[in-house]
Amino acid sequence: MNDHKPELICPAGGLPALKAAVDNGADAVYVGFRDDTNARNFPGLNFGPDDTARGIEYAHRAGKKILLALNTYPQVHNWSVWTTAVDRAVELGIDAVIMADPGLLRYAASHHPGLRLHLSVQASATTYKALEFYHQRFGIRRAVLPRVLSLQQLWHTIANSPVEIEVFGYGSLCVMVEGRCALSSYITGRSPNASGVCSPAESVRWEETALGRESRLNGVLIDRHGLNEAAGYPTLCKGRYCTGTQPYYAVEEPTSLNILDILPDLFRHGIAAVKVEGRQRSPAYVASVARVLREALDTCASDPERYLVRSQWTAVLDRLSEGQTHTLGAYHRPWH
């Protein structure tokens, strides 16, 4: 396993965000095409053919990489949309594709043996045995792990993994075993794996009332925020529900993951890359997060023993976070 400085992987939903990522210290930027082949299929977001070519040129000129997320699951009737996207990625000179569907992985491995494959978080592979399978069958070179493992589980997986490991370092949390969430389908009929979106904007309604901001998903009230209470994304998992008398965050609170506290441990265990969530966010977010994480990674690399999280890093990141707070998520859970 590699024990050098992990790569910083930043999101971009458009060309300005891509440039912001490259200019502020990302080693690689991940993007998606403007269709349902990726898990951020939002109106007006993502890259058309022109933008993709320009983005790749911009990144390559700076010595950075572009990764393409093709991480949703094609269905029988639209299979060719996904395979065409893989072919296009190769033509454009994308450095790696991030995929989840085994059929698509097989297509890429057999038609484009030179293409570098990363296993998407949507594939939900949480054990090294699963990674061995994807490695043997499709020759994946890296896997992005879901945000549900405790640190012990993570170290165990890295130690036994046949491929490089990438973990989420900062951004909104998806608390389910990614790729297996059926919560959203229950209320909106859509899910990240099939439609590339879990709370489609057309199902979301906010209303400012005398009691505060009410968030509705497909007509169902999922939360009400008091006057100055920080809010998050309108996903079903981050709503407040009554299971007893008082409504509370029964599944997950609106908060963002932040791994700055455990960076030296991640270095020590040989993590290959740290990923920032948020292709749906604007260039201002990408620039700020990239700047902070770049500084943190460089600081940690130069002297891991003396590394300390600077308070201004946390301040910058918390300001951008859901609920304006952060968590270590499952990493700090005691389960094994």
Binding site: E229, A231, R281, S282, A284, Y285, L320, E322, Q324
Partner: peptide, 11 residues
Amino acid sequence: LDDPDTLFFAR
């Protein structure tokens, strides 16, 4: 200078 999501979370 800010992204809309940030301002939206902050109300």
